[in-house]
């Protein structure tokens, strides 16, 4: 394996779980489509790896590619199929995850899907626990504006999850 391939493998292993989770959020839990998007993300990482100049953290750079890959996606299924996907959503395999929590997570996916593309990306990054400064760097929106926006989406989302 070449040195580029070795570096690439490390990048893939370290970043795959967060990339796939973000893609799942974007595809309303559609596992097959999320895997395709994650694959596309890593293909673009490979294609652009030589151009990565350490101007930002590697994970920030990968998140950017992942968000943009999801933004550019045009194979979304029709609404009818999408709803079926949510109903079949396998949200957790852990035993201590109660049915109530699973319901909440399904509702969360549905509520995220109601947001605009950019707001969806912002809140998915926030749910991942990324610092707001990093989210601002990924999205190219000023820190102050991101903070206000996140506050507004959080309220919107919490309200939506509880059907208020």
């Amino acid at each position: 394996m070449s040195s580029k391939e070795n570096t690439y493998k490390k990048i893939y292993q370290q970043n795959y779980p967060k990339v796939i989770r973000l893609c799942l959020g974007y595809t309303v839990g559609n596992d097959a489509l999320a895997k395709d998007l994650a694959q596309e993300t890593f293909i673009k990482v490979w294609q652009n790896l030589d151009g990565f100049r350490n101007e930002s953290e590697l994970s920030t750079w990968i998140y950017r590619i992942c968000v943009n890959t999801c933004l550019a996606e045009i194979r979304r299924e029709r609404k009818k199929d999408k709803n079926l996907q949510i109903d079949n959503l396998q949200v957790s395999a852990s035993n201590d995850f109660s049915a109530e929590k699973e319901d909440m997570l399904v509702q969360l996916y549905k509520c995220i899907d109601k947001l605009s593309s950019i707001n969806k990306a912002i809140i998915l990054l926030e749910l991942e626990g990324l610092p707001q400064l990093e989210i601002s760097d990924i999205m190219g929106i000023k820190h102050e504006a991101i903070r206000t926006r996140i506050h507004r989406i959080k309220q919107q989302l919490t309200k939506c999850v509880h059907n208020e």
Binding site: Q13, I20, F42, F97, L105, T158
Partner: peptide, 29 residues
């Protein structure tokens, strides 16, 4: 009522697919 932190906690605790050797081989291919 659950707040956003609960949602975030649930989000981060959901099961996700981890990276596998086969997955990487398929990607490289």
């Amino acid at each position: 009522m659950n707040n956003f932190e609960d949602l975030q906690n649930n989000w981060q605790n959901q099961t996700t697919v981890s990276a596998t050797e086969d997955g990487f081989k398929a990607l490289l291919k």
